[in-house]
Write a protein that binds this DNA or RNA. Structure first.
Lengths: 227, 227
DNA sequence: ATAAGTACGGTACTGAGTTCCGTACGTTTT
DNA sequence: AAAACGTACGGAACTCAGTACCGTACTTAT
């Protein structure tokens, strides 16, 4: 006999949860309702998901693990590539399941408890990036601060692109925007990281055309003294 | 008669909560315990705090309101000053009540529910900064992205300084470190904001001394075409 | 065939949070 | 002074999330 394509109980529970949340709202839906709709008992629900919220965020842990291995698999000189790849991995995770992502987005936007949960999840990604960047920067001066800023910026860039895509109903390909945003971030920190190797570079500055020669000279002098 | 210095019920409840959380842990402390210790009923607790967690974060709303008014009270050309002031306000709020902040930090670090709550609170500050910076930037290109990045960076800088201070047990004055971190952030974005007035500026670039003339020419051409 | 492991159902319990009612106290109105 | 009113608290009853425990069916290894 052809094996019946029996969907796993976890999937049935997740589907039941989303459907009921859509129909009746999050608060008005009890775990009993979800379990009943999925055709299982309440006990079974809590065996598959540790909480009612978990039924909507079933995959953050798995994705975090993938990000972690991706980051650890990179050499020091490809850290930026690794981070870019990792962020692209996260965005792809949403885009690949656009249907689910959009439904969840509408839900998360309305239910404070879910929004807080989402924010907490994002913080875990940020923490992962921070630790990775921290190791990458080693014990250079301000390494902790720079790691924090880079991680926050990378995550913020991703979130900005993702939110725009979600608000637009997933109507376009967000990866070019992501590359643009990440390029922005990388350019930002390249400016800051470059002074590290200043001895190897030509010092350059930008001035208004209207600036007086004297102001230009003062700025150059200030810059030379500051390095 | 001299009026007895009767502490408000809210204060008594907060003190009772913190004391019990310290003694028996967060999960092992029930709302009944807190109310009993404060000498009131369970009903009264929930009239003063909407949840058990609220008893530890009694002041985020008030601080958010202060930040909001501080930001709105600033003109466009002093936006950076306003943000710096606002962040300093937040840090001061922790430093002024060092005792409470440190106790809460130890607690929040151990209880996942409280940690998530704290993260969610931070996100609200970030949202406030983002909206402010967004209005400040108007509809310049990439305004949304830049606002997101600036807000995230400012908050990250603050958190990095605050966490270091908390980990050190509040043993030093963190405001110089905050100024340093914020200076870092401001310098970062100053580099990026300058190209805004590109029409009024001389286009300049930085190259390695080892770069071939051909590579330099290609980069310049790419830049000119991109603007 | 027996033993062990796993997955599910069912029951009972704790505790957070809500709703509603009653009451005491102080303030205003007439 | 008496009545009307608003406010703050106590208390009871309720819903529901989450946990602990036990029993049972079904599968797999030995």
């Amino acid at each position: 006999m052809a094996p019946v394509p029996k969907p796993s109980i976890s999937h049935r529970l997740a589907e039941a949860a989303v459907a009921l949340f859509d129909e009746n709202g999050y608060d008005a839906t009890t775990v009993d309702d979800i379990a009943a709709r999925a055709g299982v008992s309440r006990s079974t629900f809590f065996r598959h998901y540790h909480s009612k919220e978990d039924a909507i965020f079933p995959d953050h842990d798995a994705l975090l693990a993938r990000i972690d291995t991706r980051l650890r698999a990179s050499a020091a000189d490809t850290a930026i590539v690794a981070i870019t790849d990792a962020v692209r991995l996260v965005l792809a995770h949403y885009v690949d399941d656009a249907e689910v992502s959009l439904r969840r987005y509408r839900l998360v936007r309305e239910v404070p408890a879910l929004r807080d949960r989402e924010i907490a999840s994002v913080a875990r990604y940020q923490r992962l990036f921070r630790e990775f960047v921290g190791e990458w920067l080693g014990d250079s001066p301000d390494a902790g601060l720079r790691a924090e800023l880079m991680a926050a910026s990378v995550v913020a860039a991703h979130n900005q692109v993702l939110r725009g895509w979600l608000r637009a109903g997933g109507a376009y390909d967000p990866f070019e925007l992501l590359d643009h945003a990440l390029g922005y971030v990388i350019a930002t920190f390249r400016h800051l990281e470059q002074p590290q190797e200043k001895g190897e570079q030509v010092v350059v500055a930008t001035f208004s055309r209207s600036a007086s020669p004297r102001a230009v000279m003062e700025a150059i002098q200030a810059h030379l003294e500051a390095r």
